[in-house]
Design a protein around this nucleic acid. Structure first.
Length: 614
DNA sequence: GCGATCAGCT
DNA sequence: CACAGCTGATCGC
């Protein structure tokens, strides 16, 4: 559980992702995404009562989050109190104290967080400066520099960004690599017969949708899920899921399942409609965690006779967080999750060290373009060295692309049926594999998996991966039949799809069978896993400690031996090959800290163009 | 009977 | 380590 109590010290009248205890007194609520651990207290009777007697208290979130939230009847009482905001549209929100009538104006902007459908970060601007609440996020390297509102115009340099970071960030293989591997495993299994079935053992409520659409496209099928209600306004997702259990790919869940029929753990039943027993393998998408040292890992790990775990993370990896922070250069950072055994100070220091390291990040140049006078103000909190407050009066200069809209709590300014503009944030597609295996062991332990013979498949990460852009799944329209037909938008998978079969596959899939006592392992249907076993993937990993130092960008192998001869068009995409802006000078840590020191002191900072910047 | 909290499991 | 849950036991109202 996050240690974040729901309130930011700059703006204590708003509560984010927590709705219990002190948050009951908030003047406005913000929900970053629809995962239960960010919804504590949201259906509490006290809050429910408060809403009943309030005209001004609202819950702000994305349209998708609103949709997902209201698909659960337990939250239906929020319906008239939710204000959905569009992404990247700065919105004026007035917080009103209903007792005194005191008002406080904020400009809040939702930024896509990439964590699950509807997930956002909240950029808050007001009298106490600019604060970014990230919530959970999965942003790829370079994404921050593509979010215009994080640096547009002169705003960024005048703000101190407090970044509430979830430090539990799962390391991740790059999504597309993971998807490719999962597709391979699924392909191998479902092609055996129509009775060979794959169960995706998905834990969280949301976040796997991209996996579903990807597999659905690949295998021209729909994924069996428990309910479609929440997706009824999201055609991209809806067209890929079904409640008809006669499909070979399932992601269904049942509250009281896991009553093991050993070889058949399908929650919706273990036999086909004609009574034929199904041969089921389970694939559990799960986070792979950073280890301490020199870890290698696989994209897919076999955990039992018929069970696998596949790397799939909702969170940015360490290197991605680092990239994000080193781009933002926040003055203060407040971590939300403190690992057991570490102190708050530990994590804060770690995060700050990330900020200072700019050598491997996207180049920081845009924020420094225009500067204006800043002035220091009184400290509202003692002790803290960076409580600089800024005038909020001119915080709303020209908003690029977006007219600022007002969302006063007393009126509902957002017509719910308006089509949403799609925003375009091209995402970078390369990331190295930096995960190690989770120790989240589950039921079957009959395979002790061994770490031997590290091989890497860097080439595989240079494919066409496109991280999920959940907003594209969403429409405010109810679907017509024609929209629900099998889609064939090849935009996100076409290049990699062709690599699934044929020689290129061997580049991705390392034959790992030597490590498995496979011949002796009975499968659910008494069959061997000949192909599937060969699909376990492993790769050299770079451990966390290494990531802090500068790695050689070339991606030279350190693995003990290479595998599989085929030389791909090896576009080894490195984490560190983000091109610099021509003629730009990358400011060093000292440059930046000096700059921020001067900004904080209210000095005039002159910008120059060219190499003399800073 | 419900909610909140915690242990346990995954 | 931790994710995003769920279930069940216990305690208090």
């Amino acid at each position: 559980m996050s240690s974040f109590a729901g309130r930011m010290k700059e703006y204590p009248n708003m509560s984010l992702d927590r709705f219990d205890r002190e948050n009951l007194h908030a003047r406005a609520y913000f929900l970053s995404h629809c995962h239960k651990d960010h919804m504590k207290g949201l259906k509490g009777p006290l809050l429910k009562r408060k809403l009943k007697f309030s005209l001004t208290v609202k819950l702000y979130c994305s349209f998708v989050t609103k949709e997902l939230l209201l698909s659960n009847p337990k939250y239906a009482f929020w319906e008239d109190h939710i204000v959905a905001l569009e992404l990247e549209s700065p919105t004026l929100i007035t917080l009103i104290d209903e007792a005194s009538g005191e008002r406080e104006e904020l400009v809040v902007t939702l930024l896509p967080a990439g964590h699950c459908p509807g997930s956002v970060m909240f950029l808050v601007e007001g009298a106490q400066g600019t604060v970014l609440y990230t919530g959970d996020f999965r942003l790829a390297k370079g994404d921050a520099s593509r979010i215009e509102l994080l640096h547009s115009g002169s705003r960024y340099t005048h703000t101190y960004v407090h970044t509430y970071i979830h430090t539990h960030s799962g390391a991740k293989k790059y999504l597309e690599t993971c998807l490719h591997a999962i597709r391979g495993l699924v392909q191998d299994w479902v092609s055996r017969s129509v009775y060979h079935t794959v169960w995706l053992n998905c834990k969280a409520a949301y976040g796997y949708e991209y996996l579903f659409t990807n597999l659905g496209d690949e295998f021209h099928t729909q994924i069996h899920v428990k309910s479609l209600d929440m997706f009824k306004k999201m055609p991209e997702i809806l067209s890929h899921v079904t409640t008809d259990r006669a499909t070979q790919i399932h992601a269904c869940r049942h509250p009281k399942d896991e009553e093991f029929v050993p070889a058949s753990r399908l929650p919706c039943g273990s036999s086909a409609s004609d009574g034929t027993p199904l041969n089921i393998i389970s694939i559990k998408p799960s986070t792979m965690w950073f280890g301490e040292r020199t870890q290698r890992t696989k994209v897919i790990v076999r955990t039992g006779a018929s069970s696998y775990r596949a790397c799939f993370s909702f969170h940015s990896s360490y290197s991605e967080i680092k990239d994000f922070l080193s781009y933002l250069q926040p003055i203060n950072i407040y971590p939300s999750v403190i690992p057991i055994g570490r102190t708050h100070a530990d994590v804060t220091e770690l995060l700050k060290s990330m900020c200072r390291d700019v050598s491997s990040s996207a180049v920081i140049y845009r924020p420094l373009g225009t500067l204006k006078r800043t002035r220091p103000e009184q400290h509202t909190h003692d002790g803290d060295c960076a409580d600089w407050l800024f005038e909020g009066a001119d915080l709303a200069p020209v908003r690029k692309r977006v007219m600022m809209q007002e969302a006063t709590p007393t009126t509902l300014p957002n017509p719910p049926d308006e089509p949403l503009p799609l925003t375009h944030i091209p995402l970078i597609t390369g990331d190295y594999m930096d995960c190690t295996e989770s120790n989240d062991d589950e039921e079957e332990r009959d395979l002790e998996e061994e770490e031997r013979g590290g091989e890497r498949d860097e080439g595989s990460v240079s494919n066409s991966g496109t991280p999920p852009r959940w907003e594209e799944f969403f429409t405010t329209e109810i679907l017509t039949d024609s929209q629900t037909s099998q889609p064939h938008s090849c935009s996100h998978t076409s290049p990699s799809r062709s690599t699934l079969t044929g020689s290129q596959t061997s580049e991705l899939f390392v034959d790992d069978s030597a490590k498995l006592p496979s011949p002796s392992i009975p499968l659910s249907a008494g069959q061997g896993l000949s192909q599937a076993e060969s699909m376990l993937i492993q790769s050299e990993d770079r451990c966390q400690g290494d990531a802090l130092t500068n790695l050689d960008a070339g991606g030279e192998e350190s693995g003990s031996h290479t595998h599989q001869s085929e030389p791909t068009e090896s576009q080894v995409s490195s984490d560190f090959d983000i091109p610099s802006t021509p003629d730009s000078h990358t400011p060093g840590p000292d440059d930046l800290s000096d700059l921020y020191r001067r900004l904080a002191a209210g000095e005039e900072v002159v910008t120059r163009t060219g190499s003399q910047s800073l």
